[in-house]
């Protein structure tokens, strides 16, 4: 895949038309899912369901603003409201909403159950989602038991064939981390093992590039790509991908912080490598971002207190 640089030679990402095209294309990548969610959420017209729906949307809004703790509160609220509706009269819509909130609370097994019940009450799409969640849950438990090959196979299937976006993203993340783990655990004491390490890294890179191609505006995938590129010591591209991830938005404060530290690490590595005019130009463009993000200096993100 040919990666598009975000321009350390330019002022800001948003001034780059290529970047804008990527973002716009990604936004429409899942029209069916977006349409389905919009129809589903707008059809929850009865009052308690409307309240649960509104809280769910509020949670999503807060999550986009990286206010994770408040978003969690609203997901929990939405889940409780959907449960109260189900206790009075179980409906496919209420189970679906409960399942959606549970996915966001990382309650994977509970979400699978809710989607199954939604499907049993007539919501066909929910069955496929439940199946994917079940597979993901299974992969996680295999991984916890140390069966990394089996879990990698399942994550690979989900990353390749999955339709439910949160599960696909989680599977891609786990798969990449498992590849990097295998690479870290391989001793590079012979040409054969060195070759094995390079092969594992190429596999990880292919997985992420495939994910970025399928959803170019997903900040999380750019974050993953930046991580893999750093293993290749390609610090300039890694930095560009990290910046792109930050600008597109990341799903949690924890990932955002990890991504910030990746930016700082790449900046420091590049500052050691570059010299003369190239270094000056790089520092000028890097400082534009630092200013935009309101960091304390080149190596201290705003959240860093110490």
């Amino acid at each position: 895949m040919k990666r598009r640089g975000i321009g350390f030679d330019h002022d800001h990402t948003t001034h780059n038309p290529g970047y804008r095209r990527l973002a716009v294309r990604g936004f429409y990548q899942y029209p069916a899912l977006i349409f389905f969610l919009a129809v589903f959420l707008s059809s929850c017209a009865s009052s308690p369901l409307l309240k649960a729906r509104t809280d769910y949307l509020q949670a999503q809004e807060l999550e986009r603003s990286l206010r994770q703790e408040e978003a969690t509160a609203f997901y929990k609220k939405s889940r409780e409201e959907a449960s109260a509706i189900i206790n009075k009269k179980p409906t496919a819509e209420a189970y679906l909403l409960k399942g959606l909130a549970e996915v966001n609370l990382n309650l994977w097994a509970e979400a699978e159950n809710s989607f199954r019940l939604a499907a049993a009450l007539g919501e066909d799409k929910a069955l496929a989602w439940a199946e994917e969640l079940r597979l993901y849950g299974l992969a996680r438990s295999f991984e916890a038991q140390g069966w990394t090959e089996t879990s990698s196979r399942l994550y690979d299937i989900l990353a390749d064939k999955g339709k439910y976006q949160p599960v696909v993203r989680a599977a891609v993340g786990q798969l990449v981390d498992l590849k990097l783990q295998a690479r870290a655990e391989t001793e590079a004491n012979s040409p054969a093992s060195q070759k094995e390490k390079s092969k594992t890294l190429s596999e990880a890179l292919k997985i992420v590039e495939r994910a970025v191609e399928s959803e170019p505006a997903c900040g999380y995938y750019h974050y993953l790509l930046a991580q893999v590129l750093a293993h290749q010591k390609d610090y300039r591209e890694s930095l560009e991908e990290s910046v792109m991830a930050k600008e597109l938005g990341l799903p949690s404060e924890k990932i955002n912080r990890d991504n910030d530290l990746q930016i700082v690490f790449c900046y420091e590595q590049l500052a050691k490598i570059l010299s003369g005019e190239e270094l000056t130009a790089f520092q000028i463009s890097y400082n534009n971002w630092v200013k935009k993000w309101k960091w304390l200096n080149e190596t201290t993100p705003a959240w860093k207190r110490s």
Binding site: Q68, A73, N106, G173, D177, A230, P251, D258
Partner: peptide, 26 residues
């Protein structure tokens, strides 16, 4: 927000979502 969420929100940070396996140089 509410207190239950504040507590569980902090715990939610512990879910494995960041890439744990960093390069040796990092």
């Amino acid at each position: 927000g509410n207190l239950e969420a504040e507590v569980s929100g902090l715990r939610l940070w512990l879910e494995p979502e960041v890439v744990d396996n960093k390069p040796d140089e990092f």
